[in-house]
Write a protein that binds this DNA or RNA. Structure first.
Length: 867
RNA sequence: GCGCGAGUGGCGAAAUGGUAACCGCAGGGGUCUCAAAAACCCCCGGAGGAAACUCCUUGCCGGUUCGAGUCCGGCCUCGCGCACCA
């Protein structure tokens, strides 16, 4: 055919319905994405991981976005010559399975495994380059048994503690929540107001690593700054002092109150001491003072919901007790119980210095307590300075403070601590906002905590050889509480130590334990140990982790801790699990209501027909519909689009392409029907272009051919750079340009070879994003070829073709663009300036002026500075 | 309140301190068609002008620079996170 390529009048359409499953089978059959647990070759490794899904039953657009991003990285790195580990599994324990059991009578295990099967099939239809041989679910004893082993190892290493503590109790879910799972005073799942309750709980000692977890954030240079800041704030290091205030008269043997402060320098500005309502001394007071008891009960009822905190006044109850100042022998202060003091932080007691703390000031004003300023702001007159409605928290000079007078704030802190230590009533102390991680949950569908309670021996670990402690299948959900606790036989066991009858722990682990080490298990998912040391040594850390920002604290912090704990227990030998982290934005959509305001029922997008003017009507009834805000897809607002339907209608490649093309991946993207349709058009367009591939030409290349080659090779560079920097939308734009350039070059004489090259590169560069289309197109271009695009290396650009044969130079006068000149490259300043000065527009702009200076940026800009 | 982002055409956006708006979406006009779809071609920040071209334009004000969307200072707005943490 040579140059006379015939373009069929009816270009055959790319049949994705037939092609996509065929290529998915081809990749699977060839085992394209398989790697060894412990490879023997010396290919560089790259571990790409997307946060594994909870098996809710259906994938949503957030999954499509997440897994598409990860797949582009995986396929690109693979083409770049890396051995890529890219696994998938299921975060399969959790409450929804139990809710299904309660509401619909389906066993949690059946519900979960059925959901997994459905979602696996959906993910497979996306054409992800996953190694399904590594798949596991956390609800499988083959996984959680190893988790129990890890827990016991942590226990032996002193990283586990059982203690009675105030817990966040979710009355709806009937379980304990970690601090991290309480949002605005409500349970993260149920939304119920959280109550305070005292319970015996298992804790993992994450606080042992507080300093390390904080310090190491600095080493995570491929994490978003935002996430590092959030973690640093969550860990919340503060420096201060812990000190004792002796009670003037002891109560129930309590002789002193311990206080934590970050402002020991303001100790002489004290005017009261305040206790948390849950403080033991508060309880002692309440035992003999009904009014105190009533106040404490009130505080407990108030909870900590956002609404309450916003409006809550500082309130307190004067206990009548007095404490002595540590340095002033005969001075005493009143002891209050106050609603704004938190038992969980510091010691649950504070000294109030109203002059330099806003909360203390509010409290003091309300209860008419003294306000004594002790820090003098710079430039203020000590005789004049008073505190009004705003506490002074800035720097200054200490006054009214005995031996510290004249010191600055920092020096005074040191001086007070030294004096406290000398007197033996206090010391400097670093305090943390981070609490130990309470992992006990009173639930069935979780990993059993592998311990046994024996009346004689106390808490006894389940011997390793008895692991896994499996969940019983025969449980009932007919009453509230923990089905494991209700089970007739499961918890009754013999004590492994003394043989006496004993009770199994019926609490299960928080699901965040399950996800705190799964990334390591993926390296050797079938090993008899939790992890194979050589496998994790090879594959870890995860080079690129991708997921939602909502896990910025909980999951990522727990995983960082778990990795350290696994290092201490010699399961692995590194600290940080995720070298690179990328947090994607949400997928959003317009929302629709049948009528304005809260009375309008939410409508699904496919119930709505958009009118050309942007308004909307009901698909069936034609009734007008209210188009609402664009917001995150959610079931409650019904503004969801089902990925299954999109893939069925347009194909996986179209869905992938659209999700990548719309905007930068860290921002929220809006899903629009028009956008998907545009992506679909491009798939067909690429395929039509491929039909013009033709036979290898024999004629010489034309100028147009050479120009097309330049575009092609510049595109290789541009797409590579874009993919390297997660600028997938830019990569997409450059590929559209290449397609446009191929179409523009057409089938004119002398472009044949260039077009063949351009088409082949287009297909190979598109492959990480639209892998099925790439394979199908490649096969069209090379009929009978056994090569898969998935196995081709990433193309290299020819450096000679990156050099343009003409350059366009902007000519500015006084920084304003006056002309552009097209020149051969490397003419030099003098020649280019001469050419620029002969431009009529430039001459006009320089009329009546003299050029005083010429700024020349080679082959880019000439700027004449004139006076 | 504190911390972090972000403000660029009708919309999503692009732009090593160097020609602002690549590319896509939407829209308008056209070709083909009995018609529609598809496809293809043209236009598409604002103002002025017949045109050449000129002026304005990256939230606002100022600064640095030959040159600022980009750097610096101050404000405004929006979003997100944290929030009685002593």
């Amino acid at each position: 055919m040579n140059e006379s390529v015939t373009v069929a009048a009816e270009a055959p359409r790319y049949n994705f319905r037939e092609a996509e499953p065929r290529w998915q089978r081809a990749w699977a059959e060839r085992g394209c994405f398989r790697v060894a647990d412990v490879p023997t070759d010396n290919k560089p490794k790259y571990y790409v991981l997307e946060m594994f899904p909870y098996p809710s039953g259906k994938i949503h657009m957030g999954h499509v976005r997440n897994y598409t991003l990860g797949d582009v990285v995986a396929r690109y790195k693979r083409a770049r010559g890396f051995a890529v580990l890219h696994p998938m599994g299921w975060d399969a324990f959790g409450l929804p399975a139990e809710n299904a059991a309660r509401e619909r009578g389906i066993h949690p295990a059946k519900w979960t495994w059925d959901n997994i099967a459905a979602m696996r099939a959906e993910l497979q239809r996306m054409g992800l380059s996953l190694e399904w041989e590594r798949e596991f679910a956390t609800c499988d004893p083959a996984y959680y048994g190893h988790q129990q082993k890890l827990f016991l190892d942590f226990m032996r290493a002193g990283l586990v503690e059982r203690k009675e503590s105030w817990v966040n109790w979710d009355p709806v879910d009937g379980t304990v929540l970690a601090n991290e799972q309480v949002i605005d005073g409500r349970g993260w799942r149920s939304g119920a107001l959280v109550e305070k309750k005292r319970l015996s709980q298992w804790f993992l000692k994450i606080t042992d690593y507080a300093q390390e977890l904080l310090d190491a954030l600095d080493t995570l240079d491929r994490w978003p700054e935002r996430v590092r800041l959030m973690q640093a704030k969550w860990i919340g290091r503060s420096e201060g002092a812990r000190l004792d205030f002796a009670l003037a008269t002891p109560v129930d043997g309590i002789a002193a109150v311990e206080v934590y402060t970050t402002r020991p320098d303001t100790l002489f500005g004290m005017s009261f001491l305040a206790l948390a309502p849950e403080h033991p001394l508060s309880a002692a007071v309440a035992a003999r003072d009904p009014k105190a008891a009533e106040f404490i009960a009130e505080c407990r009822r108030m909870g900590t919901s956002e609404a309450v905190i916003e409006t809550a006044e500082k309130r307190g109850h004067d206990t009548g007790l007095r404490v002595r100042h540590p340095f002033l022998k005969d001075t005493t202060y009143p002891v209050w119980i106050a609603n704004f003091v938190l038992m969980e932080y510091g010691t649950g007691a504070i000294f109030g210095c109203p002059g330099h703390d806003q909360r203390d000031l509010d409290f003091a004003r309300k209860y008419k307590l003294d306000v004594v300023p002790v820090v003098l702001p710079p430039g203020e007159d000590p005789a004049q300075f008073t505190v009004g409605d705003e506490a002074y928290v800035g720097p200054g000079t200490i006054f009214h403070s005995d031996f510290m007078n004249g010191l600055d704030v920092e020096a005074a802190k040191g001086a007070v601590i030294a004096e406290l230590e000398r007197l033996g009533v206090g010391r400097g102390e670093v305090n943390w906002r981070l609490r130990d991680w309470g992992v006990s949950r009173q639930r069935y569908w979780g990993c059993p905590i592998p311990v046994i309670h024996c009346d004689g021996c106390g808490v006894v670990a389940v011997p390793d050889e008895q692991l896994p402690v499996k969940l019983p299948d025969d449980v009932t959900f007919d009453r509230p509480g923990n089905p494991l606790d209700h089970h007739p036989t499961w918890k009754h066991v013999a004590c492994p130590r003394c043989g006496a009858s004993a009770r199994r722990e019926t609490d299960t682990f928080d699901v965040f334990v399950d996800s705190a080490w799964y990334f390591a298990r993926f390296c050797s998912p079938h090993a008899d140990l939790p992890v194979l040391r050589e496998a994790v040594a090879h594959w870890m850390p995860v080079d690129q982790y991708i997921g939602g920002i909502e896990h910025a604290i909980l999951h990522l912090l727990y995983s960082r801790f778990f990795t350290r704990a696994m290092k201490r227990t010699v399961h692995l030998d590194f600290e940080e699990p995720f070298a690179g982290l990328f947090t994607q934005g949400m997928v959003t959509h317009e929302s629709y209501r049948s009528a304005p305001g809260p009375n309008g029922a939410w409508l699904y997008p496919d119930e709505v027909t958009k009118q050309p003017d942007g308004s909307a009507v009901h698909r069936d009834t034609g009734e007008p519909i209210v188009v609402g805000r664009v917001e995150a897809m959610s079931k409650s607002k019904r503004n969801t689009v089902d990925p299954e339907a999109i893939i069925g209608r347009y194909g996986a490649d179209t869905a992938r392409w659209f999700v990548l093309s719309d905007n930068p991946p860290d921002r929220d993207m809006e899903w629009t029907e028009a956008g998907v349709a545009g992506a679909f058009r491009f798939t067909q367009r690429v395929f039509r272009l491929v039909e013009t591939f033709g036979d290898a030409p024999t004629e010489a290349a034309s100028d147009a051919g050479r120009d097309l080659r330049r575009v092609t090779h510049r595109t290789i560079v541009a797409v590579s750079e874009a993919l390297d920097s997660f600028a997938f939308n830019v990569a997409v734009a450059r590929l559209y340009e290449l397609a446009n350039a191929i179409a523009d070059a057409g089938i004119a004489p002398g472009v044949g070879a260039a077009r063949r090259e351009a088409l082949e590169m287009l297909v190979r560069l598109v492959a990480p994003m639209m892998p099925h289309l790439a394979e199908e197109a490649y096969l069209r271009m090379h009929p009978g070829a056994a090569t898969l695009v998935a196995d081709l290396p990433w193309p290299d650009a020819d450096p000679d073709l990156l050099v343009a044969d003409t350059v366009t130079i902007a000519v500015q006068v006084m920084g304003k663009l006056r002309a552009t000149i097209v020149r051969p490259p490397n003419c030099g300043e003098e020649a280019n300036a001469a050419a620029a000065l002969s431009e009529p527009n430039v001459v006009r702009a320089l009329e009546g002026r003299t050029v005083r200076k010429t700024i020349y940026v080679p082959d880019r800009i000439i700027n004449f500075v004139a006076a």
